[in-house]
Design a protein around this nucleic acid. Structure first.
Length: 621
DNA sequence: GTAGGGTTAG
C-alpha cells in the first residue's frame, strides 16, 4: 500500500481527515497501473464510497482503460440506476473490446427498462464504433428518430459503419448529404473504398482533400498495399515524405508490406533504417512486417535477426517466421518453431498450418505433413480450408502419391478451385501420369472448370510422352473452350526501379536488346544440350494464342533484362506471380552455370536460389 | 463524467 500517493498521503494517515469522494475520483484518473487502481479501489471500499456514482463511474472507466472489462461490468452492475453517462461509458467499453452484441444488449436494456434512460448522441457514437453492417442498419432509424443524425460524430460513425460493412452506396449518400465534411468523415469514406478495393474512388477523395493527417495517408497507402498495387503504395509514400508528413508505425507497416510484395530489399532496408534512426518503437506489428519484408525480399538472415530480438511475439509473428522458413525451404527450422509454439500452448491459427504444411511440402516430408494435417481438426479444432488442402495436394502430388492427392480433392468438404486442380495436374506432368491427368481434365471439362492452363498442361504432358495425336486433340479443345488463366508476370528491380514483364512482352524500351540477349541465352543452353519443351506445343491455338506461341515466359524476359542491365557477376533477383515452370527452372539453372551469376527467383510458393547450375530447392518444389 | 477515421502473416 505504501507505494501509492493515495495510501500514503490521503487515506491511511490517521492524522488527516478522511478524503472527499471528489479527491478520490481525481486520484482514480491519475492511476498509472492496474495495481495502483486495485489499491485505490480497495481504499474506496474501506472508506465506504462504493456507492458513490461518480467514484464508481471513474473506477469503471479506469478499469476499461486497463482492459479489465470484468471489473468494469461488476461496478456497473453494482450501481443502482446508472445514468446515461454510465451507460454510454460501459457500452463504449464493450464496443471498444469488439463485444458489440453485448453493447447493443445494454442499449436495449437502457431504453426498455421501467425507468427509461434516454440515450444521447454520445451513446450512439459509442454503439456505432466498429459495429457491423447489420448493427449499423438496426441503429440508424433510432438515430434519425431521436434527431442525432445531424451530429457530426454520429453521422461520421454511421458513414463508417456502412462503409466498413461494404454498403458503399449508403455510406456515400450519408456522406454526400452531410452538412459539412470533416477530415475524419472523409477518411472514413476513403477507408470504405480502400478496404473494398475501389482504389480509384478512394484516391479521388484523397486527392481532393484540403488537409491531410497521417491517418488518411495511411489508409490510402495501406489500400494500395493490400490490393496488390505495391508500386503505387511506394510512390504515395514518397509523396508523403516529400510533403514532410511524418510516417508512423502504421504507415511503415503498410509500406513494408508493399516492399515485400515487390521483393524490394533496398526499399525495405531503407524503411528499417528509418525506424532505427527516428526512434520509432519496434512493436510487434512493425517487427512482424519487417520479418515478412525481409523474408519475401530474400534475406532470411535479417528476418531471423528481427524475430529473435522481437519482444512480446504473438502468434502472427511466429506464423510469419514459419512462413519465411517454408518459403526458403528450411523445413527443420519451421518444424522447430512449430513445436515450440505447441509446447507454449500458443493458440495456433489457420495460417500457422498453411506455413508448416508448405514447409513439409517443399521438403517432401509426407508423413509429418499428414500427421500435422490430421492434428488440425483433431487436436487444434481448426477446420482445413482450401489452402490447407492445396498444401496437402502439393505435398502428396510432388512426392508421387497422385492417387491419394486426387482422392483428397474428391473428398474434401470445400469446392476445389482452379489452383488446386492445377497443382494436381502439375504433379501428373511431373510424374508422367497421363491416365490420371486425362481423368482429371475430363472431369474439369465436363464441369466447365477447364482453363487454357488445363489444356496447356495436358498438352505438355502428351508432348513429353511424344503423343502427338493427343497434342492435336488439345489444340481443338482449347479453341472450343477458351477460358483464360492468370497471365504470368515477373519483375526485377534494377537501380531502384521495378521493371515488370508479362509473357511475350515487347513493351519495355529495351525490348530489342532483351530479345537479342534471349537469343544468345537460347544458344548457350542448346550448346549445353538442353532443348526447350514448351516451344513445340503452342503452335496454332487460334489468333491470340498464335501471338503467344512466340512468347517467352516472363521470368526469362526478366532474367535477360537483368543480364544486360546489371554488372557482370552481380546477383539477379526476380519475383514471379505464378509458380516457376519446369522449363524455366532448367534454363535458369544453366544460365547460372554459364554466366556465373546467382539468380534468386521468388515464385508464388517459395524461393529458388540458382547457383552454378543447381537450385536450392533441389528440383523439388 | 460520456463520442467519429488507420496496423501484420499464406
Amino acid at each position: 500500500m505504501l507505494s501509492t500517493p493515495f495510501s500514503t498521503t490521503t487515506i491511511t494517515s490517521p492524522s488527516t481527515p478522511p478524503p472527499s469522494p471528489e479527491t478520490v475520483a481525481s486520484l482514480i484518473t491519475t492511476s498509472k497501473t492496474i495495481q495502483q487502481l486495485l489499491q485505490i479501489h480497495a481504499a474506496v471500499i474501506r472508506h465506504g464510497f462504493q456507492n458513490h456514482p461518480i467514484v464508481n463511474f471513474k473506477l469503471q472507466r479506469s478499469y476499461s482503460s486497463f482492459n479489465r472489462l470484468d471489473q468494469s461490468l461488476a461496478l456497473f452492475n453494482l450501481t443502482p440506476n446508472p445514468n446515461v453517462f454510465f451507460y454510454t461509458s460501459i457500452i463504449h467499453a464493450h464496443t471498444a473490446g469488439n463485444l458489440h452484441l453485448r453493447g447493443v444488449k445494454l442499449y436495449i436494456q437502457m431504453i426498455s427498462q421501467n425507468e427509461v434512460v434516454e440515450p444521447n448522441e454520445f451513446t450512439f457514437s459509442a454503439l456505432l464504433k466498429g459495429c457491423c453492417l447489420e448493427t449499423g442498419r438496426l441503429l440508424h432509424p433510432h438515430v434519425i428518430k431521436l434527431g442525432f443524425d445531424g451530429n457530426m460524430h454520429v453521422r461520421t460513425a454511421l458513414v463508417d459503419a456502412y462503409s466498413r460493412g461494404g454498403d458503399l452506396a449508403s455510406a456515400r449518400q450519408l456522406f454526400d448529404e452531410m452538412p459539412e465534411r470533416s477530415l475524419v468523415s472523409l477518411t472514413s469514406m476513403i477507408t470504405g473504398y480502400a478496404k473494398h478495393g475501389d482504389l480509384v474512388r478512394a484516391r479521388a477523395l484523397f486527392d481532393a482533400m484540403t488537409e491531410r493527417d497521417s491517418v488518411c495517408w495511411n489508409v490510402m497507402i495501406g489500400g494500395y498495399a493490400k490490393y496488390g498495387k505495391p508500386t503505387d503504395a511506394l510512390t504515395l509514400f514518397r509523396d508523403m515524405m516529400r510533403v514532410k508528413m511524418d510516417p508512423d508505425e502504421v504507415t511503415l507497416v503498410a509500406v513494408l508490406s508493399a516492399c515485400g510484395q515487390i521483393g524490394s530489399l533496398e526499399s525495405g532496408r531503407w524503411i528499417h533504417s528509418y525506424v532505427k534512426n527516428n526512434g520509432i518503437h519496434m512493436n510487434v506489428h512493425l517487427g512482424t512486417a519487417l520479418i515478412d519484408m525481409y523474408s519475401k525480399s530474400g534475406s532470411l538472415k535479417d528476418a531471423e535477426l528481427i524475430f529473435n530480438k522481437l519482444k512480446n511475439k504473438d502468434v502472427i509473428a511466429y506464423n510469419s517466421m514459419i512462413t519465411a522458413y517454408a518459403m526458403h525451404g528450411f523445413a527443420q527450422e519451421a518444424l522447430l518453431l512449430f513445436s515450440n509454439m505447441c509446447r507454449m500452448h500458443t493458440r495456433l491459427t489457420d495460417v500457422s498450418f498453411v506455413g508448416i504444411l508448405n514447409a513439409c511440402a517443399h521438403s517432401g516430408l509426407v508423413s509429418i505433413g499428414k500427421g500435422i494435417f490430421l492434428s488440425m481438426k483433431g487436436k487444434h479444432k481448426i477446420e482445413p480450408t482450401i489452402e490447407h488442402y492445396g498444401c496437402m495436394v502439393n505435398l502428396l502430388g510432388r512426392a508421387g502419391y497422385l492417387e491419394q492427392a486426387y482422392t483428397l480433392v474428391k473428398n474434401m468438404k470445400v469446392d476445389p478451385d482452379p489452383v488446386i486442380w492445377g497443382t494436381l495436374l502439375d504433379s501428373c506432368t511431373l510424374h508422367r501420369n497421363v491416365r490420371l491427368a486425362e481423368e482429371i481434365v475430363k472431369f474439369l471439362v465436363d464441369h466447365n472448370l477447364a482453363n487454357s492452363g488445363t489444356y496447356i498442361l495436358l498438352s505438355n504432358l502428351y508432348a513429353a510422352t511424344s503423343d502427338w495425336a493427343g497434342v492435336a486433340r488439345m489444340r481443338t479443345m482449347m479453341k472450343d473452350h477458351m477460358v483464360h488463366k492468370e497471365p504470368g508476370c515477373s519483375s526485377i528491380e534494377v537501380h531502384n526501379k521495378v521493371h515488370e514483364f508479362v509473357a511475350g512482352d515487347t513493351k519495355h524500351p529495351n525490348s530489342e536488346k532483351i530479345y537479342m540477349m534471349l537469343e544468345e541465352v537460347n544458344g548457350w543452353v542448346k550448346d549445353h544440350g538442353y532443348s526447350p519443351q514448351t516451344d513445340i506445343v503452342l503452335h496454332d491455338f487460334g489468333k491470340r494464342e498464335r501471338a503467344r506461341s512466340l512468347e517467352v515466359h516472363s521470368e526469362k524476359l526478366a532474367i535477360a533484362f537483368g543480364l544486360i542491365s546489371t554488372e557482370a557477376g552481380s546477383s539477379i533477383k526476380i519475383v514471379k506471380n505464378l509458380r516457376v515452370c519446369l522449363d524455366c527452372h532448367e534454363v535458369t539453372k544453366l544460365i547460372s552455370k554459364i554466366t556465373g551469376r546467382r539468380i534468386v527467383v521468388r515464385d508464388r510458393n517459395r524461393f529458388h536460389l540458382f547457383e552454378d547450375g543447381s537450385c536450392s530447392c533441389g528440383d523439388y518444389w
